[in-house]
Nucleic acid binder design. Structure first.
Length: 743
DNA sequence: GCAGATACTTAGCATTGGTATT
DNA sequence: AATACCAATGCTAAGTATCTGC
């Protein structure tokens, strides 16, 4: 209790220093919510914690058109009636009005890649090359000098050894840097061609199932039953999950049981007809023992395993792509298992089957060494398609969708695409004002389809909602995005908490993450929403004349390469840039700067609704940290007292020795204060991060060049922001970004 | 124009493994 | 050396968007 109070106090103090709330308004950045504050509420049925975004107090309206009077219920095209839903929740859209062909923005439709290349001069290798080379040399020089200088000082052997290790590390780093494929300095391939040469060893298959030892038995109706190999394997999948909540759900159990029975012999199937009579106890116990044993393995045993894994990685984890060795992302075929969908997935518990080489398509160069299938097997197909990036693919049996083996995020293929993504988003900056003006205009359109498109776009832009493709009902959990919102997902409030025209959103989005938000909107949007909801059932689509294909078709007519998801990238990166500018100060110390960075990152995560379950050990670890802070405080008090005493004595008789003591004590106090600050900041940071996930936005939405430039400007080491993997992924950005980069 | 197929990005959770602490 | 902790990594599901064939 006392600790909690103190924690709160610390937090409050910190908040005073630098704004605790995220002010997302202002500038040319999305005039979104002012003061977004994460709040915790109870989540829906799943019992998961969810984050609530407090309703914005005020709305800045710099891209809204104030005059709203004109919009009357001047009805539309006359035939406005909600569409009946088919089984699949897929709508037929009557051949829609020709696009209100439009705006000065309209550009001839062109191939996306081409356009983005032409559009931005910084998206090309030539100019960067020289600068980059020069920079590289400089870095190397500095690194060479450093360890030598330090080494001479050290006297102890161990310290020398540490230095040697450090030097080795630097050397390794340097070597790695030299090996790096600087693809961003090369010419790009012709449209659609992804590689000229591709060679690899095929995917790695999981080991065969090992039958149970004889002393571990499965019981049915109290009697031991020796299962066939296939049935036993699947039984073990279930037994392994017994600790998990999944196995208590009816859907999961039913799906599992149905699929399990398919694996059984006729005899077994006759016998085993009720899952409740199955006793997996011994199987479960065995599994737990194995897990335990694994944990308790000796160092040597662990090393053996590690080396074996290393060997697999060496053999299957890399490929040759255009003369360069590239790391493969997911070279291991997914092992068989029980399907674990997210949320209330209708297919949870079904058996995800073992993939055989006969199921796998290999893609590689015609003139490469074709991968050899495991002994006694053959590939489904070997093809040589240089317009795709995958090395192998197979069809998964749950949804019937395709799975791919692709390269690691640090590869050229992924990096180039990523770079391009941010360039498209940056291009949106040049026309976003016109697009916003356009959809404000479209809110008044006589055609219902266009109005719906305008409102949807408004949501996507303002709230960073996802596009919302249609999904087949019964195949997946019931989740929605913007275009697939249903009437039941929003509530309109004429006034709410002092705001007018408030829309309350409450729906499950991707991964069944709840989106809950109360947003004041313009009168015009509000009236449109009322109109869209007229004469509809709760389960009817809000935008019955719109789907993602139509929306994206419209968007690509406004700017080549523009799709709904570009707005998320654009608004995320803009928010980061603007928040960094607002929150961070060059005169702050390193710790404060990093807190600011995290807060800017957090603002984006809140915007994009990136949530996580609070870590299981959260409360405990917070308490631990708090305790540490307390003890440090005591230390500080003590150090201060000693300093005071020392000063007193020094004053009494000014002795050089005593003065030295004063200095020493001063330093101790200072160090203590620094450490205390660091811990307090850490506590604040962690608390604010309790159920917000920063990594998704960092990895997928934030132009790395913003962060690189910020680090350079603020003189913060980049590895405080990006770990090794992230630095590898963003190598292109790290290499090319100058101090003056602006998204 | 549409449905299904295809290819690729985005997502959160589980496990691992390295480091600090005892 | 054992343990605790948390960051990094691995995994694979779930999205977006485009392509293809009628």
């Amino acid at each position: 209790m006392a600790q909690e109070d103190k924690a709160k106090k610390v937090k409050a103090e910190k908040a005073k220093e630098s704004a605790l709330t995220y002010d997302l308004s202002g500038g040319d950045v999305r005039p979104n919510v002012k003061k977004v504050k994460a709040k915790i509420t109870e989540k829906s049925q799943k019992g998961k914690m969810q984050k609530k975004v407090k309703s914005p107090k005020k709305e800045s309206t710099d891209f809204e058109i104030a005059d709203d009077k004109r919009i009357k219920e001047e009805a539309n095209d006359g035939d406005f009636m909600p569409e009946k839903k088919g089984k699949k929740r897929k709508r037929k859209l009557e051949s829609v009005e020709g696009p209100s062909s439009s705006t000065a923005l309209s550009l001839p439709k062109k191939k996306k890649k081409k356009a983005s290349q032409e559009g931005d001069e910084s998206f090309g290798p030539e100019k960067r090359k020289k600068k980059a080379e020069a920079k590289n040399k400089k870095v190397k020089k500095e690194e060479e000098e450093h360890p030598v200088a330090v080494k001479t000082k050290k006297t102890k052997k161990t310290k020398e050894e540490i230095e040697a290790a450090r030097a080795l590390k630097i050397k390794k780093k340097e070597e790695e840097e030299q090996q790096r494929w600087r693809w961003w300095e090369e010419e790009k391939y012709a449209d659609g061609i992804k590689w000229k040469f591709l060679e690899h060893n095929g995917p790695y298959f999981p080991p065969e199932y090992q039958p149970l030892p004889d002393n571990v038995k499965f019981y049915y109706d109290g009697k031991p039953v020796k299962l066939s190999l296939a049935a036993e394997e699947v039984a073990l999948f279930f037994a392994q999950m017994l600790d998990h909540e999944y196995t208590t759900k009816d859907v999961f159990r039913d799906n599992f049981f149905a699929d399990w029975r398919k694996e059984m012999t006729l005899e077994e199937r006759m016998l085993i007809t009720d899952l409740n009579k199955c006793d997996f106890g011994e199987l479960h116990a065995m599994h737990r023992e194995r897990v335990e044993a694994r944990k308790n393995m000796s160092k040597e045993e662990k090393l053996v395993i590690k080396e074996a894994n290393q060997k697999i990685l060496e053999e299957y984890g890399y490929c040759m792509l255009d003369k360069h060795r590239e790391r493969i992302g997911n070279f291991k075929i997914e092992p068989p298992a029980l399907f674990r969908g997210r949320g209330e997935h209708p297919k949870q518990g079904m058996l995800k089957k073992r993939i055989q080489p006969e199921d796998v398509i290999i893609n590689c160069s015609r003139d490469s060494r074709i991968p050899v299938p495991p002994a006694g097997h053959s590939w489904k197909e070997v093809r040589h398609d240089d317009t795709v990036t995958w090395l192998a693919s197979w069809t998964e049996n749950i949804q019937g969708s395709c799975k791919y083996v692709m390269l690691n995020a640090n590869s050229k293929l992924k990096g180039e695409k990523d770079w391009e993504k941010y360039e498209v988003a940056r291009k949106l900056k040049t026309c976003v004002d016109a697009i916003r003006a356009q959809y404000q205009q479209d809110l008044k359109s006589k055609q219902m389809g266009i109005r719906q498109r305008a409102v949807a776009l408004y949501f996507i832009d303002k709230l960073a909602l996802r596009a919302g493709n249609e999904k087949e009902e019964g195949e997946t959990a019931d989740t929605v995005g913007c275009c697939s919102l249903r009437v039941e997902h929003i509530t309109l409030h004429d006034t709410l908490g002092g705001d007018k025209c408030v829309v309350e959103f409450d729906f499950l989005g991707k991964d069944c993450i709840r989106y809950y938000n109360k947003v004041p909107v313009s009168k015009r949007v509000f009236k449109n929403l009322k109109l869209f909801m007229q004469n509809k059932q709760e389960t009817d689509d809000l935008f019955d004349r719109l789907n993602t294909a139509l929306l994206n078709k419209h968007l690509s007519s406004l700017m080549p390469g523009l799709t709904a998801k570009v707005f998320r990238t654009y608004n995320a990166s803009m928010t980061l840039q603007q928040q960094l500018k607002e929150l961070s100060n060059p005169s702050d110390n390193q710790v404060e700067k990093l807190l600011s960075y995290n807060r800017a990152n957090r603002a984006v995560a809140v915007l994009c609704n990136h949530q996580r379950a609070p870590p299981k050990t959260f409360e405990q670890s917070m308490a631990n940290l708090q305790a540490k802070i307390e003890s440090r405080k005591e230390q500080l008090a003590l150090a201060k007292k000693e300093l005071k005493q020392a000063k007193k004595e020094a004053k009494a008789n000014s002795d050089n020795k005593l003065l030295a003591v004063v200095e020493k004590k001063k330093k101790a106090v200072q160090r203590c204060e620094e450490q205390l600050l660091r811990m307090e900041v850490q506590a604040t940071d962690r608390e604010e991060n309790k159920q917000i996930a920063l990594s998704t936005s960092k990895l997928n939405y934030l132009d790395p060049r913003i962060s690189v430039a910020w680090c350079k400007n603020m003189e913060v080491s980049l590895d405080k922001i990006y770990n090794k993997t992230q630095r590898d992924k963003f190598a292109w950005a790290i290499d090319m970004t100058e101090l003056d980069f602006l998204f």
